[in-house]
Design a protein around this nucleic acid. Structure first.
Lengths: 340, 340
DNA sequence: CAGGGAGATTAGAGCGCTCTAACGATGATA
DNA sequence: TATCATCGTTAGAGCGCTCTAATCTCCCTG
């Protein structure tokens, strides 16, 4: 993109000022909705602006005012409805607060995340919300030295950096108790690997299982993608016998599992009960009907914006981790084990 | 977000210049990777910059250089995987061309779209890609007076404005011929309403149906959402008899239909064959297995960026509509009608 | 009618960078 | 030795706005 538009130069505030016969400062006041402009002048300025097709240059405004008025939002994977949910909440809160948002997508690559964060810092965003980043905690904290950061879905609290996430332990507890109540006495967990919150989730599963007396949890490594679910299913199918219940790292993984298992003739939930995490729109599809944990993505997004504002207004000082309360959503992918 | 970060002021290029004992102009050259800087000076500057934690201010750079180097991308609905696909293509092309992207999401509201476009114009983006906008054509063309625009999924060609979309007529043809070949002799179409491309799609359906001799197409109004599918299904269920085949405006609508029909005990495809459009990731889920039309979202996104670059480099001058070739993806939601 | 505000308007100095034109130093050329 | 490119470097004028402090009106008060 070498030239801008081939349409000549756009009118500036000075042009409007001349056309309206006032000073540039007055035009500036008009466009910032200042109450100290007389109705008559305001109208004259707006007329002139419309006449010229003037539109304030946000770049110049941001430079002169030394603040961008924007919050950067980093989403990891546009294909995962989890992020759409989080973004909904962020956007709603931003609207309430009159903030602009700058969205970037890192496509699940660490390098992409880092580059995206650097770009936002260069943009001088007034704050950043990182949704389920995979990036190294230290690199995130480094960035937090320049602008307040709120991380969603993972515990990265530190100086100038807060977190908003679900109470993973409580969530895992809900799942384990649900399966236990159905009669399951063993459990396989597909791990989320380096995905945000995966560690806490796994720890929660192990603890909860121990608490209700379900033997050592069988853990299969994975990540947060559908293909991890497919891979895990293949591994399970290669074994002499299937587990009665599988708790996947998230919905996407669960769907990969479900698909692959059913292709192999395994019935869900008759042969294997399946639980996901996130309660994405996918889980709710009647055809999937996945039992899962709702961590209220929009609420997390909304909270993230609130925390960010509190921090940048100085109300908040100590690093905090805000936990949302998870909720079990029971659907048709879980039932009593065949043996029971 | 009143104050920036409470961390004091960030170092500027001047600070780096002083620290390195050179002029600001030289520092500027270094950060723009100019070949005319001696290796020794370059290193000295980079050292000083690292020392100070300097990061170029993109806002100032953009203002001084009179170009933002960014392309604005407007996505309608983050929950529809269609947009994730288009974005993938846009991002890939932007990466190849070394352009920054600014993403905005309008959440299916016309007012949101308009505001988002205004914001991007204020940002002085070097171009805009609008994915399936619902906005009035004239408003889009107005915006095109300020910066080149490429519209994806809808025909809005005009001065400084191009379109990239699937050959809707060909797509509709594929579907109609597929259903006809299976033995269907009547067809119901759920319309996409004001959604991008819906008009062309409907026209294609009607024409193709006439061409193969399938009677007048039964058209039910709707839009591009899952709930439109639910509503359409309710309407169908209220009738004395069901159609043998339904072609939904897109995958989301088809899924809404499928869910609601099956809840009512109707079997897909035994009782009703169902076809979607977009070949989103949802359609491919084994549990959905929706026959649909692939319009290659990433390819459209990629093409959109190419067209945009051609236009801003002046290679392209006449408004053009680029068509991608649709492809029928046959899955389990279609079969011969019961009567056949 | 002087004095004092309150309200409306403006001058002017930046914000942090880019970019053109000019500069000094160096070595090649005549 | 004077002349001239060439290369690396720099001075300085903006880019289009914001924002503080000053100014200018107009009206009220005593």
């Amino acid at each position: 993109m070498s030239r801008t538009n081939g349409l000549g130069d756009l009118p500036t505030m000075d042009d409007v000022a001349v056309a309206a016969g006032v000073s540039r400062a007055l035009v500036s006041l008009v466009f910032r909705d200042s109450p100290k402009v007389s109705a008559e002048r305001r109208e004259r300025v707006l007329d002139a602006a419309k006449q010229l097709g003037y539109r304030p240059n946000a770049i110049a405004r941001d430079l002169a005012s030394r603040r961008s008025g924007t919050v950067g939002v980093l989403l990891n994977d546009l294909h995962n409805p989890f992020f759409a949910g989080v973004y909904d909440g962020v956007e709603m809160a931003a609207g309430e607060m009159g903030l602009r948002l700058v969205l970037t997508v890192s496509r699940q690559r660490d390098a992409g995340e880092h580059a995206a964060i650097e770009t936002m810092l260069g943009q001088r965003v007034d704050g950043m919300i990182l949704a389920s980043p995979r990036l190294d905690t230290n690199l995130i904290l480094d960035a937090a030295a320049f602008t307040p950061i709120v991380v969603v879905g993972r515990d990265v609290a530190g100086p100038n950096c807060d977190s908003v996430m679900t109470d993973e332990v409580a969530g895992a507890n809900l799942v384990v108790r649900h399966l236990h109540a159905l009669g399951h006495r063993s459990l396989t967990h597909i791990d989320g690997g380096r995905g945000a919150g995966a560690l806490a989730r796994r720890r929660g599963v192990v603890e909860a299982a121990a608490a209700v007396g379900i033997g050592p949890v069988d853990i299969i490594p994975g990540d947060f993608t559908e293909s991890a679910g497919v891979a895990a299913a293949r591994e399970l199918l290669a074994r002499p016998s299937l587990p009665t219940a599988v708790f996947a790292a998230n919905d996407l993984v669960a769907i990969g599992l479900m698909t692959t298992l059913e292709e192999a003739g395994v019935q869900v939930p008759n042969d294997v009960s399946l639980v996901g995490f996130d309660n994405t729109s996918l889980a709710g599809l009647r055809h999937i009907a996945l039992t899962t944990v709702d961590q209220s993505c929009p609420e997390m997004g909304h909270q993230a914006m609130s925390v960010l504002r509190q921090r940048s207004e100085g109300i908040r000082d100590e690093p905090t981790v805000t936990l949302t309360v998870p909720r079990l959503v029971t659907r048709r992918s879980t039932s009593a084990p065949r043996s029971a």
